[in-house]
Nucleic acid binder design. Structure first.
Lengths: 235, 235
DNA sequence: TACCATTTGTCCGTATGTATC
DNA sequence: AGATACATACGGACAAATGGT
């Protein structure tokens, strides 16, 4: 058993603080099992607060995503997803400063490229086959002049999911969300080239050619950088 | 099921949705100037909602940190800090699954090591001098057997701040916060060695010896990984 | 110093709508 | 269809911090 101490009472505000603390305790209790939390009525009684007070305290955790409530059913605990929180606020910031997208791309490229070795060694045939499917869809859509953001995203997501790093996956998902929301590089000049780029990546993957794969990723990020800068100039 | 546009809320409940929208508009308006927002009374009137409703809508933005309210003064808009949001939730998760720290360290090491080239080319003499000061403090504290988390942190922060990437800075800050909160590797076996490690890093920096610097960082992260794993075994 | 209006914080109660089981 | 549980909204009251007089 871990020592769940109810924090040293060094703060002035015992009620609010301890209510928050008690909810955290409740969360930790239910985090492993992902059980349903007790209903509001029960919690009101247990903590001795009104519904408004309780709900306000809970809402903080809900906006974080560590507690999710389903109307008519109850509240549940889950591992939080940072994406939503970050996107909610930073999409607003980016509206004011679009050049921030370059900073994000910089981080994304570092993380993806450095994840390639691990992704390459851990990927399995099913995933490889799935990547092949995505590439085929890309090519067919490109031929029809349709964009294929979803497939592009799935392709990358499949790669970095195989690193088995939850935080990394969430972080990269966040970047995709922010880019999509910003609606920059919505339409790429040469869809077919992008599709082929991914086909080459897949081949490099199949051949376990890490240097080539890295280079292809580098090129792709260069291209993305260019697209963003072009958009920035136009606005 | 897959009914797109699950609800057409416009006829029923335009208020909630547009209330959020209006607040976002308010935020964007004030994001550049960092002015004070209108008081609740004014917003209640302007948006035509009750205080409870208004406050609940605002609280979502407050928990994100893009709005901060000061009792007795008012509400202010600021560029949000992802650190707080992430730490709030993930420190809880880490309490349940401490092994997650290894994943975080993995990301942190990738980001820091890949930031070294840029940091090296952009660092100035003032910063270099500041790093030297930190190292001296580290050594003197190590001699007395005192830990020097703050100086260690300042050392690294100075490096990656010089990359001028706000998001990166916030991310790395987040990791430090999470590690500190987890209270793992609080006490290192050999403080003096850590201090010397940083001294060597500083020398490599001064000599612009990137390969050596990278190697030193690698070693440092290896050591950190070992410290974490040791802590994991003990619990 | 002290008082004051302003502004946010906290808390309570109630009512009605809506989704789930 | 009914009971349960959460969503949304309104109203009021008092406390606490701030900023200015």
């Amino acid at each position: 058993m871990t020592n769940l101490e109810t924090t040293a009472p060094k703060s002035k505000d015992p009620k609010t603080h301890s209510l928050k603390e008690m909810i955290i305790g409740l969360i930790i209790e239910h985090l492993d099992t992902e059980e349903k939390l007790p209903p509001e009525k029960e919690l009101m009684r247990r903590f001795g607060v009104s519904r408004t007070t309780l709900r306000e305290a809970l809402s903080a955790f809900e906006s974080n995503g560590i507690i999710v409530s389903r109307q008519g059913s109850g509240r549940y605990v889950q591992i939080p997803n940072i994406s939503k929180q970050i996107v909610d606020t930073w999409s607003i910031v980016i509206q004011s400063k679009p050049s921030m997208l370059l900073e994000l791309l910089e981080i994304r490229s570092i993380l993806e490229i450095n994840s390639l070795p691990k992704a390459m060694e851990r990927i399995n045939t099913d995933q490889l086959q799935y990547l092949g499917l995505q590439v085929e869809i890309m090519k067919s859509k490109a031929a029809k002049g349709e964009p294929f953001v979803k497939e592009d995203r799935q392709f990358h997501k499949t790669l970095f999911t195989s690193t088995n790093n939850i935080f990394l996956e969430q972080l990269l998902t966040t970047f995709w969300d922010l880019f999509e929301e910003s609606e920059i590089n919505k339409k790429h000049n040469d869809l077919m080239e992008v599709a082929f780029q991914h086909e080459k990546m897949l081949e490099a993957f199949a051949k376990q050619d890490l240097p080539l794969l890295s280079q292809l990723f580098q090129e792709q990020f260069s291209d993305a950088r260019y697209q963003i800068m072009k958009s920035l100039v136009n606005s």
